[in-house]
């Protein structure tokens, strides 16, 4: 993992795949909170640095593969 903060990214969730396991909120407490049913509520944008590193970890941690990162600036 490089220390380069890179471009602004945001965390996305596929709500169909998500089953509310909740690992993401434990791994990435800066950008993910859980709603009252245990499903993730995601921050609009991730600050480069610790929050983004946490988010990458959350993407890897999700047993349903429901999370991904994408550029906060829409391409095109």
């Amino acid at each position: 993992m490089s220390r380069d903060p890179g471009p602004a990214v945001r965390l996305r969730v596929d709500p169909v795949a998500c089953e509310g396991v909740g690992l993401c909120a434990q791994v990435a407490d800066r950008s993910v909170t859980l709603d009252r049913w245990g499903y993730p509520v995601l921050a609009a944008e991730l600050e480069p640095g610790a929050a983004t590193r946490q988010a990458r970890r959350a993407v890897r941690a999700c047993p349903r593969k429901a999370l991904w990162l994408e550029s906060a600036v829409p391409d095109r």
């Binding site: 709500p15 169909v16 998500c18 089953e19 709603d35 049913w37």
Partner: peptide, 9 residues
């Protein structure tokens, strides 16, 4: 009934 927030919300 696919997405939790819709299903319960």
């Amino acid at each position: 009934r696919q997405c939790g927030p819709c299903r319960f919300g």
